[in-house]
Design a protein around this nucleic acid. Structure first.
Length: 267
DNA sequence: TCCTTATGTACAA
DNA sequence: TGTACCTAAGGAC
């Protein structure tokens, strides 16, 4: 479930590993690097958008990006024998963490880490984020706001679910051009992302439905989708909009599925 | 057992 | 715009 909230949550959870950490790569693809950090202390963890950084010693970092399929699983020691898809297993005296299927898992230094930060836009989950930096690009772009929200150079951490949901919550048609997003709209969207994504970190899932639109409040059955949270439009194509009853629409946009309500969201 | 799908990204043409 | 990469679950046979 890798949008930014997942990665920030992983930074917190990995950060609980204490003392010297055993590192291994049962799958083999990270063996050389794992042996270099084996026995070192995990000194800090950090997330920027969908990128996770595990800091060992003074300036060694394991850079992880889950991509679409990557998964992390935590468990108590003794750890079961690792299967052949575990890229990286970390363990302290009490727990182990398995990483599978990441797009990126690499041992890097401070300079390479700085380069990753440099190519990412502001992250609603980071205290150092400046929303004006994102708005500068959005307000000058003829691209659709849907594409801009998924562009990690513009804003880091938003994925397909938060994109669809935040546009719905603010009544913005996904095909509207970035340059037609007003400063007031951007302020509201950014503030909402900060709140929604922090809640996502806390709950480890994405919930976006306002209290007055929950299934209980609306007298309808609870969601059936298995992605984990209660949402307005994500993966609800052809189902009735929770607010107005219109069929939710879907379309492909840059190889991803877009979802929106044609009545609630305005051009 | 095979096919589809998925909350992502990079690179080639 | 298409394709490649990584994994696992669910559904159709």
């Amino acid at each position: 479930m890798p949008e930014g909230h997942t990665i920030h949550r992983l930074a917190l959870d990995y950060g609980r590993l204490a003392g010297p950490v055993r590192a291994s790569s049962p799958q083999g693809k990270f063996s050389d690097s794992a042996s270099l950090i084996d026995g070192a202390h995990l000194t800090r963890t950090e997330a920027h958008g969908k990128h996770l950084f595990l800091g060992f010693r003074d300036s060694d970092w394991v850079h992880i990006h889950l991509g679409l399929f990557g998964k992390v699983g935590f468990g108590a020691v003794p750890a079961p024998p690792a299967t052949d898809t575990v890229r990286l297993r970390l363990a302290d005296a009490t727990s182990y963490v398995d990483l599978r299927g990441p797009t990126t898992c690499a041992l890097i230094g401070e300079a390479e880490k700085a380069a990753v930060h440099a190519r990412l836009g502001p992250d609603p989950l980071r205290a150092d984020a400046d929303p004006a930096v994102a708005y500068r690009r959005i307000s000058r772009s003829r691209s659709t706001v849907a594409a801009l929200l998924m562009d990690q150079k513009v804003i880091a951490g938003v994925g397909n679910v938060y994109r669809a949901e935040v546009l719905f919550r603010h009544g913005i048609d996904p095909y509207r051009a970035g340059k037609d997003i007003t400063p007031a709209e951007w302020d509201a969207v950014w503030g909402d992302l900060v709140a929604l994504m922090h809640e996502g970190v806390r709950n480890n899932r994405i919930d976006t439905v306002r209290p007055e639109h929950t299934p209980e409040a609306m007298g309808r059955p609870p969601r059936v989708d298995d992605h984990g949270g209660e949402v307005y439009v994500y993966r609800r194509a052809t189902l009735p909009c929770h607010v107005c009853g219109t069929e939710i629409r879907t379309a492909g946009l840059a190889a991803r599925n877009l979802f929106w309500c044609p009545r609630c969201q305005k051009r």
